[in-house]
Design a protein around this nucleic acid. Structure first.
Length: 611
DNA sequence: ACGGGTTATACG
DNA sequence: TCGTATAAC
């Protein structure tokens, strides 16, 4: 049976939704009395009335612009309502607007595949909806609709926004390949506010021919200027004269081919199904005299930033079941007596472990490290003019996971795909820089060789393999504990294949003197640190092809595999060692001199469906 | 030495 | 990879 593919890939119907003066609208929704009044949103107000970050259309009539100061706006437009961005922890707090943006996305997401492009912009793939419409509407009526749409920019389709739709039907499509997102984006800016612009395929060629390159997304900056100055390209149409090689010569293979393609309307950019941001960040500037000049003041602000970030990633975890793996700190700094206005302060990153104080400690370390690099051997005064931290490398938690605390309290997520016997396996999922191990170690290496080597390394180091389980789909992992339980752990992993731990365990036993040495896996050494074991413990329903042997432990007890036997209410009755161990998984003992170069991991417990 | 605070992406 | 630079809103 052939798979139905009714839709050629090049005929997507894509809308770009761009909110007009979004922050202002959010404030006006909150306080309807502001509606119709000239309104702007300002950040802070102590210096020259604060900086405007959004200006309503009523105020724009007076010439009020973004980037003006509040005082200036007031001069031009005495009646202007200046609404301050909320302040929390001494800094601007944009959560109100972020959440409003999420509201919009989730509404749009009911209409088609959505990609959140920014706090107030969404791409929306309406192909299915359009096809539905096409199939249910007689062609004559469709023509009429199209005509209407072309004549006037349809008003107020969405209370919140001006909407642009780019519509093309397969039968209208002549030679132009997918160019949709870019065009949609382009046209949404053409008629504002509260209007939509429809771009039929037939108009695209002419539109591009005269379109200034600077108007195109990605060409608004230096690259666009270079096109104008170095190549004399002023419109997208002008680009057509240049060969692909020529463009690559100037701008590299990647950018060169990209330019060549877009000038021909070729752009593979699909609307990616993503409703949530890929990272979270927060920062603050300390302009001029406010520059931070002591470690203590820096730490204070780092702590404030971390507090906010921690809250945000925690709510991302709670609401969206996502975990961030990397923490990055950026700063801008100057040196006293150094004529160079802004020497660069290096940005630094490390594995991200949850908990406000952990994040704060880590961020302060990152700052210290950056400051050392920044100062080198010089002993001179410095100042920090901006600080920011970010949480990135966010991944989804497997479905059905919950905190182990909840698990132990008996709050197990309801069973969906699996309903078999409840035997629980502990799994370890690699996070953040552990990905190094996979890409450096595993992908280049034969799986079996890798496993044997790992096993023999474990054996030769007199390490007791405590537990392993085969995790969901693509990643395999194991936790190796030393005999000295609780003192150190080594985390290793390998790409998942069908090989079970059973195999590995055997390999371990028989190859204790195997020639493969740990030096073959220097990257693994970096990950030997109990602190890598994150307390973010989850419970998940997965599929594990257990054979009942792979969980054998050799130091007297097992936990994890026998979780089915643990009644959460009688946790106290567990052997002391187990209790202690569980404690340590939650709160690994601190070790002063460990470098934190390894990664965090997340542990899951999965019920096993028995054959 | 800045409209300020975020996000995303490409490059080396 | 990580860190930097660029671009956008």
């Amino acid at each position: 049976m052939p798979i139905a593919r009714p839709e050629p890939q090049n005929a997507r119907v894509i809308a770009h939704v761009d909110m007009d003066c979004f922050y202002v609208q959010v404030e006006q929704r909150k306080n309807p009395e502001l509606r119709g009044l000239p309104t702007a949103v300002v950040q802070y107000n102590s210096w020259k009335g604060g900086g405007l970050i959004a200006v309503g259309y009523e105020a724009r009539k007076f010439g009020v612009k973004r980037s003006m100061r509040g005082d200036e706006a007031k001069r031009i437009c005495p009646n202007i309502q200046l609404i301050q961005v909320p302040v929390a922890r001494g800094k601007a707090d944009l959560n109100l607007y972020r959440n409003a943006g999420s509201e919009v996305v989730s509404i749009l997401a009911t209409k088609g595949r959505c990609e959140r492009a920014s706090i107030d912009e969404v791409y929306l793939d309406l192909t299915d909806a359009a096809e539905m419409m096409l199939s249910e509407t007689p062609p004559e009526v469709l023509e009429e609709i199209d005509e209407e749409v072309l004549k006037s920019h349809v008003l107020g389709l969405h209370v919140f926004s001006s909407i642009l739709k780019l519509i093309s039907h397969p039968e209208y499509d002549l030679g132009l390949l997918f160019f949709r997102k870019m065009l949609a984006k382009l046209a949404s800016a053409m008629h504002k506010p509260a209007q939509q612009t429809v771009v039929p395929s037939s108009s695209v060629k002419d539109l591009l021919a005269s379109l200034p390159v600077k108007k195109m997304k990605q060409l608004g900056g230096k690259l666009g200027s270079s096109l104008q100055i170095d190549l004399g390209v002023n419109t997208v149409g002008d680009l057509l004269q240049f060969s692909q090689e020529k463009l690559q010569e100037h701008y590299g293979v990647n950018t060169g081919t990209w330019l060549w393609n877009i000038s021909r309307g070729i752009s593979g950019d699909a609307v990616v199904d993503r409703l949530l941001p890929k990272s979270h960040g927060c920062g603050k500037t300390f302009p001029g005299p406010q520059a931070l000049k002591t470690i203590a003041s820096v730490e204070n602000w780092v702590n404030q930033l971390c507090d906010e970030l921690s809250e945000r990633i925690q709510s991302d975890l709670d609401q969206n079941r996502r975990i961030a793996h990397t923490l990055t700190l950026h700063a801008r700094a100057f040196k006293e007596n150094d004529m160079e206005p802004h020497r660069k302060f290096p940005s630094k990153s490390c594995p991200l472990r949850y908990g406000t104080s952990k994040i704060q400690e880590a961020a302060v370390k990152l700052f210290d490290s950056g400051l050392r690099d920044f100062l080198g051997s010089q002993h001179i005064g410095w100042g920090i003019t901006s600080l920011s931290i970010a949480a990135s490398k966010i991944s989804d938690l497997p479905q059905g996971t919950c905190s182990i605390l909840k698990f132990l309290q008996g709050k197990i997520p309801s069973s969906t795909s699996l309903s078999g016997a409840g035997e629980f396996h502990k799994e370890s999922f690699p996070l953040s820089s552990t990905d190094d191990v996979q890409s450096k170690g595993c992908t280049v290496m034969d799986q079996e060789v890798k496993q044997k080597a790992l096993a023999s390394e474990a054996a030769s180091n007199d390490i007791d393999i405590k537990f392993q389980a085969k995790p969901l789909k693509r990643i395999g992992s194991m936790v190796v504990k030393t005999k000295d339980v609780g003192k150190s752990s080594i985390l290793k992993f390998f790409q998942s294949s069908n090989s079970s731990f059973h195999t590995m365990n055997q390999a371990c036993e028989r190859s204790s003197l195997d020639q493969a040495s740990s030096s073959s896996f220097p990257e693994c050494e970096e990950h030997s640190d109990l602190e890598q074991i994150d307390e973010q413990v989850g419970f998940s329903e997965g599929h594990i092809d257990s054979d009942g042997h792979h969980n054998q432990t050799r130091n007297g007890y097992t936990w994890g595999i026998n979780m089915e036997n643990i009644d959460p209410s009688v946790l106290d009755e567990l052997p002391m060692e187990i209790q202690r161990e569980i404690q340590e998984w939650f709160h690994p003992p601190k070790r002063a001199n460990t470098t934190r170069r390894g990664s965090s991991i997340v542990h899951y417990f999965s019920p096993v469906k028995k054959g």
